[in-house]
Simulated scan of single mutants.
Amino acid sequence: MPRNTSGHLVPGVIPPALAVPPSITRPEYVGKAAPRPFTGSDVYDDEAVGRIRESGTIAAGAIEAVGAAIEPGVTTAQLDQIAHEYMVARGAYPSTLGYRGFPKSCCTSINEVICHGIPDNTVLEDGDIINIDITAYKNGMHGDLNKTFLVGTVSEDARLLVERTQEALNRGIKAVAPGRQVNVIGRAIESYAKRFGYGVVRDFTGHGVGSAFHSGLIIPHYDAAPQFDDVIEVGMVFTIEPMLTLGTYEWDLWADDWTVTTRDRSLTAQFEHTMVVTERGTEILTLP
C-alpha cells in the first residue's frame, strides 16, 4: 500500500491516462506545456454563463457518481475512471487531463493532501477523508468544483473539519456582492475558521474560470490580503474553494510537482463551487 509506517501517504503507481473519444473537443492547452495567456474578461454574458453552467452541471454529476463509489477498499484510480467515464459520456472533456502535464481526469486528495493529489493505486481505508476535484470542459467552457467525502467511520475531529470547511465555503459565497473587493471573501472564511483554531491555506486560491481553466483572477481565502483588490462585478465568474487544516497552513510539494501536503501532515479538507455574480449575490453554476 502506498503509505508509510506512520500511515501517511507516499506516491503510488499511476496507471496510464484514460482515452477521450476524438469527437470531444479538447481545451487548447492539451498537448502543450502550459495554456496560452488569458487575455479575456472574467465577466460573461447570459449565453456564456449558460455554457459554463452546462459544464458545471456535468462536473457536479461526476462528483456525485464518484462519491457514491467511495468506500474502504476502493483505489483512487478507480474513482478517476468513474469521473472520466461520466464526463466523456456527456460529451465533456476532463479539464485536468493534460493540463500542464497532469496525467489524470480528476484530483483525489486524501487526509493530509491539501490539493492536486494524482489518482493511483492508493486504497481508501476506513477513517480516511478524501477530496474529489473535478472540472468539465464543453462548448468552450470549464465548470469546476470539489467536495470532501468521509470514508467509512471517521474521527470526530475529521468529521467536524469537513463539516466546517463546507460552512466556510458557504460563508465565503455569502460575502460576495457587486462593488465589494474580492478580499472580503477570505475575511469571511478566515474569521469563521479561526473560531476552531483551523489553519487556512494561503497559497492555493480560488480563481477566475470559464473560457480559461484559470484566468488569472485570484480569490484569496484568508484575511489580511488587501493586495487582492479586484472589484466584484455582475456577471463575473470565479471559484471559491477554501482549504482548512487541523494544524499549519504551511505545505510541502511532492517530487511529482503536483501533490501538496500539509507540512505537519495534519488533516485538511476543501470544498469548491464555480459561481456567477448577480445583482443580489451569486448563482452557483456547479450543481447536479
Rank of each mutant, 00 (worst) to 15 (best):
G73I: 02
G117M: 13
I110K: 15
F149R: 01
G40C: 12
H116G: 02
E112G: 15
T148V: 01
F149P: 13
T148L: 13
A136V: 14
T96W: 14
C107Y: 12
G67D: 10
S105G: 11
A83F: 08
A158R: 15
I129S: 04
R53S: 04
A77Y: 04
L161N: 04
D157F: 07
R159K: 15
I118A: 04
R51Y: 14
T122R: 06
E47S: 12
D46T: 05
L150H: 12
N139S: 09
T153Y: 15
A69C: 09
K104R: 11
E112A: 15
T75I: 06
I58R: 13
A89Y: 02
G127P: 15
V88H: 05
V154M: 09
D128G: 09
S95H: 02
H142Y: 12
K104A: 13
L145G: 15
E85K: 09
I82F: 00
N131S: 11
L150T: 14
V154E: 05
T148R: 07
T148D: 11
G50N: 02
E85Y: 03
D144S: 12
N121W: 08
G152F: 04
A68T: 01
T76D: 13
N131F: 02
A158H: 10
T108S: 11
Y93C: 04
S95W: 00
P72A: 04
N139C: 07
G140R: 05
C115E: 09
G117T: 01
D128R: 02
I63C: 07
R100L: 01
G152A: 02
Y137D: 07
D120L: 13
A48H: 06
E112T: 15
G117F: 09
D128C: 07
D128V: 07
R51N: 06
V49P: 13
D80P: 02
M141A: 05
G73S: 09
G127M: 09
M87G: 07
E47F: 10
P72W: 00
N146V: 00
I118V: 11
T153I: 10
E47L: 05
G50L: 03
G56E: 12
